[in-house]
Amino acid sequence: MSVDKIALDDSRISHCEAVLNGQRYHYILGIPEHQAFSATIFLIHGWPDLSYGWRYQIPFLIQQNMRVVVPDMMGYGRTVSGPQDAPQSPPADLHLYSIKRAADDIAELAKQLGAPEIILGGHDWGGAVVYRTAQWYPKLVTHLFSICTPYTAPSRQFISLKQMVDGPLPQFGYQIQLSEPGLENDLKAYDQIRRFLQAVYGGRSERGRSCFRPDIGLDFEAMKTIGTAPSLSGQELNHYTSEYMRHGLHGPLNWYRTRLINFEDDLKLGTKMVKQPVLFITGKLDEVLKPAMSTGMENFIPQLRKEEVETGHWALTEAPAEVNKCIGSWLKEIVCKSSVKL
């Protein structure tokens, strides 16, 4: 079934900029044609995505009478306009890439847009961001949904990435490769960035070998003969590659270098609960954020609805009709009943 999606030059959206807590952000803005809207919804992407990763959800949510706000997150796409502005760390503070900083920037953008309350949606890292934003700003966030990313409650004990990989989550081994400094230096040229994106978005070698394995990360040997990425069309791959060529991989990879910072921020949070209504949509075939990881979420989220779609990690683009159906039902049955007026 064909699903409507925004084009790169779509007249239904605007490309906007805002300075949020000292950093310049780019965001997509979509407003119903009649200019009136019943709610404001922010969509937060993950790694290695862009605001355009929500291309199938933006027109759907506009049709639901929503004002849709979709930022390129810190270090991605057009959020910084040139190499001289990119927050390189060091010397820039790595806190710029923390979840708490993302929450603060979302709150500031909502303020600038005159939205005292918002709905939040996230995917991948964006899912982690929306949970914590709801906890840091409970009066701002009225409802939230997460695609693929289960809720992880704040812990009083720090667990390193290596401990996690050696223990319960061996499929997070790729994060060790991503957090190391060498990768961003090895992937700088256009063709290198293009192959990297093809690998992460499901491209295989000519012998059918996966070019990105959750347990180890990028397989550079397999990438030499990589084929098409099933989650990105040719035009979309060109767009993603061009956007990543603006600043390289330094900013996006910094999100994997903030584990201790995020832990220290969690210690200040003071709650493990998410009190807002939450929709969690899991990808049944997700090899990284496996459905079993969501076990026990209901202990921390009293108003939790769980749904699942028959797809892998890139559910937003691989199964857009199913994802939109889940979101639409939740909006109608849960969100609209609460009479959100923004």
Rank of each mutant, 00 (worst) to 15 (best):
A39L: 01
L331P: 00
S179M: 13
D9T: 12
Y151E: 03
K139T: 06
M66E: 00
M1Q: 12
Q35T: 11
I106V: 14
D265T: 04
E184Q: 15
A39D: 01
I193R: 02
S89F: 05
D10M: 07
F300V: 00
G46T: 04
Y244L: 11
I176M: 11
R213E: 15
K306V: 00
I176F: 04
R207S: 10
L96M: 07
K162E: 15
M273G: 01
V278P: 01
R12F: 05
F172N: 11
D49M: 12
R78P: 01
K100M: 02
E333C: 01
Q57H: 11
P252T: 09
D93C: 08
K275W: 01
G312W: 04
K162I: 11
L260N: 06
F42K: 01
G217A: 09
P150W: 00
V3I: 11
E264F: 04
Y190T: 14
S242I: 02
N185C: 03
Q63I: 04
A134T: 02
E298R: 00
S338M: 01
G126I: 08
V309R: 04
Q171P: 04
K272L: 02
A128K: 02
M273C: 04
K341C: 12
R101Y: 05
I13V: 15
K188H: 06
F145W: 08
V200G: 03
R78F: 14
I118L: 03
F172A: 12
S38D: 09
D166Y: 09
A92P: 06
D219K: 07
T142Q: 07
Q63E: 15
G22K: 08
Q57V: 10
L331M: 10
S11Q: 13
G227E: 13
L96T: 09
L316N: 14
R195F: 03
K5L: 06
K268Y: 06
I334D: 03
F280E: 00
A107D: 08
G75M: 08
Y151P: 03
G53A: 12
I58Q: 01
T317C: 14
N185R: 13
L197D: 00
P214G: 07
Q192C: 09
D124E: 10
W125Y: 05
I301R: 00
F263M: 05
R213L: 15
D265I: 02
K275F: 00
D4F: 03
P230V: 10
A36Y: 00
M164G: 05
L140M: 07
H247E: 07
P71D: 12
Y244F: 15
L109D: 09
M293K: 05
Q235C: 11
P320W: 08
T228A: 15
G126H: 10
L249H: 13
G126D: 08
G227S: 14
S179I: 10
L96A: 12
